[in-house]
């Protein structure tokens, strides 16, 4: 193997320093706090107290899963449609999908609140039409809607990329061998775009499971997810260590789910996370 020159190693140095300072060190802090008490003594108490939070974990996983599935159900056909569309339509759709991403997540969530709130635009419209109110904010549906709304682009884009890279000849070969359009979709296009789906699922599932502002804003404080729990625990110095333990579990959960995803993807893998 060729030895790296001193310049090559120096070029990587800032990145390594950055990683150590902002990624490795905080993780070590989490680990440290998770296994110590307020006075800095080693303890398993924080970990043992986690059983009280199992409901929160289950709820978070369920919400993230539902949001991911909905994103996939909307995102996959949308990506397919985009890949088939004329260059003009494709560009337009691309801008429509990208545009919200240029805006801060928190602001987007507030915008959604303004639309869906009990006194918001939607309900004002419904009232005008003489229809009843829809209490979306504060409901499970509202939170999942927020997740789907915020993270849908992360599902569409990787799938769209693999679709456009898909060689047209495979589709022709499928038709040649007797596939109708539906069979072409299920037997050729879907299997060949799995890597995009895996990227998309990972990129939606991970932020969904760790979100706290979406559940705070659109759940109106009624829905408590892992993210909210961690935030609350960290805000109080006396529960700092328990918060670290919960964070640790969530990190492990995310690593496991990314690992499972990687197992599904081929060697070429499209994982961006």
């Amino acid at each position: 193997m060729k030895r790296k020159s001193i310049f090559q190693r120096m070029a990587a140095a800032p990145h390594i320093v950055w990683m150590v300072m902002f990624i490795v060190a905080p993780m070590l802090f989490v680990l440290y706090f998770a296994f110590t008490d307020e006075k800095g003594r080693f303890t398993f108490d924080n970990i043992l107290s986690l059983s009280g939070y199992s409901n929160v974990f289950i709820l978070s996983i369920a919400f993230a899963l539902i949001a991911t599935v909905i994103c996939l159900l909307i995102g996959y056909p949308l990506a397919y449609f985009m890949s088939k569309a004329s260059p003009r339509t494709r560009k337009l759709l691309m801008v429509l999908i990208m545009l919200p991403m240029w805006c801060n997540l928190l602001i987007r969530t507030y915008a959604l609140m303004a639309l869906l709130d009990n006194g918001g635009l939607l309900n004002a419209l419904l009232a005008k039409l003489g229809l009843g109110k829809l209490y979306i904010v504060g409901s499970d549906f509202g939170v999942i809607l927020g997740m789907v709304y915020d993270f849908l682009p992360y599902m569409v884009l990787p799938i769209f990329t693999t679709m456009t890279k898909l060689d047209k000849r495979y589709i022709e070969a499928a038709a040649d061998l007797g596939c109708n359009s539906w069979q072409t979709m299920t037997k050729v296009i879907m299997p060949l775009t799995v890597s995009g789906v895996i990227s998309g699922v990972t990129m939606v599932f991970v932020p969904s499971i760790s979100t706290f502002y979406i559940s705070q804003k659109l759940g109106a404080g009624k829905i408590d997810l892992v993210g909210d729990t961690i935030e609350r625990l960290f805000k109080n110095t006396s529960t700092y260590n328990v918060g670290a333990a919960v964070s640790l579990v969530m990190m492990v959960l995310i690593i496991i789910s990314v690992g499972i995803m990687n197992k599904f993807s081929d060697d070429d893998g499209g994982i961006i996370v």
Binding site: R169, Y170, E172, A173, A174, D176, L177, N180, P191
Partner: peptide, 15 residues
Amino acid sequence: YERPVNTVFQKYALF
């Protein structure tokens, strides 16, 4: 897919 012909494509297009 309804024609009684099959094709061997230029670069094979194996799945």
